[in-house]
Nucleic acid binder design. Structure first.
Lengths: 204, 204
DNA sequence: GAAGAAACCGAGCAATCACTCGGGGAAACG
DNA sequence: CGTTTCCCCGAGTGATTGCTCGGTTTCTTC
């Protein structure tokens, strides 16, 4: 039980985030309201507002938790494949990405909502920047790119792969899903190859 | 004036879509409500519901109009560059894509919202499929891909490029925007190269 | 210009949502 | 046990939103 070492408040906060994630999965972004969150977590509405100043802060915290976990799994997977060809690293990374999306269906909803103009926009940009930094560092050493450029590449990479993976996991059919995930891998591989060698000598 | 040849109802419908697009731009997806649409268009709420069964249908119609225009401009741009190397075609196409996003800021909001689980989901998938068909036909002949595969590639292509362009146009600084658009171009080029020749012989 | 159809009006309804607040209960000290 | 501190409750509030409906205006057709 994680309840032992964690203080009481933090445990409740985590439980509220869990409940929100469950709702996000079941009812989508529009279906998530503070009353429903409280009900799902088995507490009163007042309790929600005892732990978070408002709805936006709660969703921001959830986005942060999602993001941290996503980066951790992807980074670990890539690290485990270190030394192998670049294409293999990308393959492993993108598949870890997709597996996370499949395991945590609410994440895509939040991430997408954070791209929209709205209350989550700031939190989304903050996480976008952080993704840029974290994956940027990874790309910087793997590809030998200057830091600033690596950050841009990482940002573009994450958004591009993320979009295709979102399409993939939305498909109910397993075969169709796997097929689109393969395309996501190719998007990632193709982009990094293009970054690595801007003008290939042959075009067929 | 287009008002002459167009029947009265269609003109009003278009005006309502225009008003919605303006609101989408100014206030984002959340800021769009039927009362505001009516006010922006200079009509009463009842009039909105005389032309559209509900809000969802209105947004669906706007998404369709956006999509048709986007495809038209991109296809025209690519057609004008026909015969040149693939990389140039992609460059022109993606830049046309970005220009459209910049010219019609509301589109990104709608497109993003249509990816979310919610009332627009169906309309979004429908348009995704149509993009797949239209661009798929374009890719099929340019790349010599079988129809079914071309559709998958087109879908992945549109989503990937779209995501990066969305990041780009959200940037206030012109330089930063241009830089990210370049990355979007590279994402498109790299992906199509990867599709065209799955395993390049060199990796450095 | 009469009659019918189509378009338009806008106050208001029902539902929903984020959030408040006054009070109660459990745990941690002495 | 008493007291302080933190945590929790949940009915209620005010604001917003999608949409309706009875009635008026504008167009079309003869």
């Amino acid at each position: 039980m994680p309840g032992r070492t964690q203080p009481r408040g933090a445990r409740r906060r985590d439980a509220l985030l869990d409940a929100t994630a469950r709702l996000l999965d079941a009812r989508g972004y529009d279906g998530v309201n503070t009353n429903a969150i409280a009900a799902e977590a088995g507490v009163a509405v007042g309790t929600v507002y005892h732990h978070f100043p408002d709805k936006q802060a709660l969703l921001g915290a959830l986005l942060e938790r999602y993001g941290a976990r996503l980066f951790a799994t992807v980074a670990a997977t890539v690290a485990a494949a270190q030394g192998r060809p670049l294409d293999d690293l990308v393959d492993a990374g993108v598949r870890a990405f997709a597996a996370f999306y499949l395991r945590e269906p609410g994440y895509a909803q939040l991430w997408l909502s954070a791209q929209l103009t709205g209350p989550l926009r700031e939190a989304g940009e903050q996480w976008g920047a952080r993704f840029g930094d974290e994956f940027g560092a990874l790309f910087s050493e793997t590809l030998g790119l200057p830091k600033a450029r690596a950050r841009e590449v990482a940002l573009a990479f994450v958004h591009a792969v993320s979009a295709v993976v979102t399409v993939a996991v939305a498909r109910p059919d397993k075969r169709a899903r796997a097929s689109m995930i393969r395309e996501a891998v190719r998007v990632g591989q193709g982009y990094l190859r293009a970054v690595h060698s801007p003008r290939p000598r042959s075009r067929r």
